[in-house]
């Protein structure tokens, strides 16, 4: 999904600003949101982590940049709890007003009228056996997919349609692109792929720079072995 979350390589955000003696949580409500998400995940109101990550990707794009990390989580969990009928938007808005909020306060959540039906995970964790043999081997050159969908994926936009080299195999894992939407775990082999800086950023790449990404098998195709070979 081409939403605001996919930040790698975007420009215009200014300096990184570390905070001295930063607390784990700045405000109690942040710990509240963190706890709600973990509890809802254990109780099955959030079915799996991929569904939750996608719920964050679906929040308002401006809120994504301005509400902070736990503000994004709040939008994501509100999406899922209202879509799942665990709480009602009207009841939540009413409670906000009774706690001193305003009717026109910004809200990150953008719940969908016809949400995905995602069954709770049957197994914990995401490592899975994959019966099929891995398609790629260490040292092999691959090209990533050049297009995407409006759904969840873990292939960042900056690495689409790029040439890389497999540097490690990580075994089989739940495929986030289907699991997030209730279309099954469909586990795939996962590979660590190395991309040279110049392949990603062209002539502006810094010297001696590479990026490593963990990518699912269906994001990858064998790279043509010779220039001009389009097989």
């Amino acid at each position: 999904m081409d939403s605001m979350h996919d930040l790698g390589g975007r420009q215009g955000f200014g300096p990184v600003l570390p905070e001295a003696d930063e607390p784990v949580f700045h405000e109690r409500w942040e710990a509240g949101v963190f706890t709600i998400v973990n509890r809802m995940m254990r109780q099955g109101a959030i079915s799996n982590v991929d569904q939750f990550r996608h719920a964050i990707e679906r929040i308002d794009a401006i809120a994504y940049l301005t509400h902070g990390y736990y503000g994004r989580w709040l939008g994501g969990v509100e999406n899922l709890l209202t879509e799942g009928g665990v709480i009602g938007t009207a009841a939540l808005n009413e409670r906000v007003l009774s706690l001193g909020g305003e009717a026109d306060d910004p809200v990150a959540a953008r719940p969908r009228p016809h949400p995905d039906q995602v069954p709770p995970a049957a197994e914990t964790g995401a490592a899975r056996q994959v019966q099929a043999a891995p398609r790629f081997s260490v040292g092999q050159s691959v090209r990533t997919n050049s297009t995407t969908t409006s759904g969840h994926t873990r292939l960042p936009a900056y690495a689409r349609g790029r040439l890389g080299v497999i540097v490690a195999r990580h075994g089989g894992w739940v495929f986030p692109d289907t699991n997030a939407h209730g279309r099954g775990e469909q586990p795939e082999h996962l590979y660590c792929v190395r991309f040279e800086g110049a392949e990603l950023w062209g002539e502006e790449a810094e010297p001696g720079q590479s990026v490593h990404l963990d990518l699912f098998e269906s994001y990858l195709a064998p790279a043509p072995s010779e220039p001009g070979d389009l097989s």
Partner: peptide, 18 residues
Amino acid sequence: MSEHSPQAIRAEALESLL
């Protein structure tokens, strides 16, 4: 985000409903 930011209040509202 301050203690009384819209995010803080909405989080508190959600927590209290749950």
